[in-house]
């Protein structure tokens, strides 16, 4: 399944994206200048993505997964840490280089209707990125637009070129969003909850489409979702996030079949597969709610809700990444 890159030299620059100790904080100010704290949306995240790999970041709302996506897209400035894309440090890019970087990273959003300007037709929506990136030849643009529409299976393209977003179904709108993300031939796609606003029957189509394109174009796909059940077939590696940090990461089957971190275990236990027996048993759900990101708990952030919390350790010291199983990271003192 996973596109193996073992044949590449173990050179750090072979990885497409290297994120080290990334922090994205949002300052809270009173009366516009008085600094009263910060939302620690992303708080010390490390990972490396290879070319052609599909990964998923999974977590509940407010766990920082969307802030992470936006930081990778260059929409938020990292507060601290390093993001290296194809060997270049993002923080040091000139404005022109940043623009080139933006062509390298496509973005698929959650709400397909909101993601499309309602006053432009499909042709114009898809032409915009090309115009922004200086493709002046009208015929060249038209050629690329048609090609990408075919690629997202909106064919025949003529039928869709003149349509406005409100004339399309949710699934078709999301295809246009994907087409827009692809039109600049990026090497990475970031999809933030790409199907959570769509109907069950359409979800699979869109996910299949994304995964197919990713495989064909050998793109790196960063798939951000709250729904673990969709992940198995559409990603190769999973990162589970909680309160601004990655608590566990491993290959899909490994993680889903052998979850190590208590939070991941709780999350998996809470998810139902359709089964009439569900109605007859209560699910185990950890008490409490995710912590405030303004004043995150000391030590392990999950310790106030964790059934295995060890006093004097979990509430004091931040757990490092342990490797309880091969190629399986989990930030929990239980693996010590």
């Amino acid at each position: 399944m996973a596109t193996s890159r073992a044949d590449l030299p173990a050179n750090a620059e072979a990885s497409l994206l290297k994120v080290r100790d990334l922090h994205t904080w949002f300052e809270l100010r009173q009366w516009g200048f008085l600094r009263v704290g910060a939302v620690h949306a992303v708080d010390g995240v490390n990972f490396t993505l290879e070319r052609g790999e599909a990964v998923a970041f999974v977590g509940e709302s407010g766990c920082g997964k969307s802030s992470l996506a936006r930081t990778l897209l260059g929409l938020h400035r990292p507060t601290r840490g390093s993001v290296r894309f194809a060997g270049r440090e993002m923080q040091s890019l000139s404005p022109a280089e940043l623009k080139a970087y933006r062509a390298e990273v496509g973005y698929v959003q959650q709400d397909p209707y909101g993601a499309l300007p309602p006053f432009l037709d499909v042709r114009r929506i898809l032409a915009e990125p090309l115009i922004v990136h200086g493709i002046k030849d009208r015929q060249e643009r038209e050629r690329r637009i048609r090609a990408v529409l075919e690629e997202v299976r909106l064919s025949p393209a003529e039928e869709y070129l003149g349509k406005f977003p409100h004339m399309l179904s949710g699934g078709q709108q999301q295809r246009v969003v994907i087409a827009r993300a692809l039109i600049l031939a990026p090497s990475m796609i970031i999809a933030d909850e790409p199907v959570s606003m769509l109907d069950a029957s359409v979800r699979v189509e869109i996910l299949n489409l994304l995964r197919g394109i990713q495989a064909r174009r050998e793109l790196t796909l960063v798939f951000i979702t709250h729904d673990l059940s969709t992940v198995r077939h559409f990603a190769e590696r999973i990162f589970v996030m909680y309160a601004g940090q990655v608590v566990e990461s491993a290959a899909v089957d490994e993680l889903l079949d052998h979850p190590q971190h208590p939070y991941t275990q709780a999350l998996l236990a809470a998810i139902a597969d359709p089964d009439a027996a569900n109605a007859r048993r209560l699910r185990e759900v950890p008490a409490g709610e995710p912590p405030s990101l303004i004043q995150p708990p000391t030590g392990c952030r999950f310790h106030p809700r964790c059934p295995h919390a060890m006093a004097g350790l979990c509430d004091r010291d931040d757990p490092p990444d342990f490797t309880p199983r091969e190629n399986h990271l989990s930030a929990c003192w239980l693996h010590r």
Partner: peptide, 20 residues
């Protein structure tokens, strides 16, 4: 609006975002 964010993500400049 998400479509403004999308425009920023594909590199549209400030002037374009405001005017277009």
């Amino acid at each position: 609006a998400p479509y403004i964010e999308a425009a920023r993500a594909y590199g549209a400049g400030n002037l374009r975002i405001v005017m277009r």
